[in-house]
Amino acid sequence: MIANYGFNDASGDWFLILNTDKCNGCGKCVEVCPVKILKVGPDEIDIFREEPVAFVKHEERKKIKYHCAPCKPGYGLGLPPCVAACEPAAISFSDGWKACFKDSHQ
């Protein structure tokens, strides 16, 4: 399952995308997240899944525009820490930024 946790700010629509089929629940993203919005636990959407999975904490979902914004790609800082730390490549960021920052990247 693909879980999209979205936010929008002045630079457009953004999504933290978690592919739960790839997620192995290792919890490395939780460790590296500078604002601690991620958590590993039982899958709340697919209740029949036995293995733990990473997700964005409930109380943070409406606030990720403040928390995720400093890490979001496109400012030339490289990958966000959660994306870089994820070995099975389950976490990704929406590529809306490519359009926003086209000039600065070429």
């Binding site: 399952m1 693909i2 879980a3 999209n4 979205g6 936010f7 929008n8 999504f15 959407i45 697919d46 979902r61 409406k62 990720i64 525009k65």
Partner: peptide
């Protein structure tokens, strides 16, 4: 009826 992809408005 299993969820494959979801998106919520913020």
């Amino acid at each position: 009826g299993k969820v494959l992809n979801f998106m919520m408005n913020d």
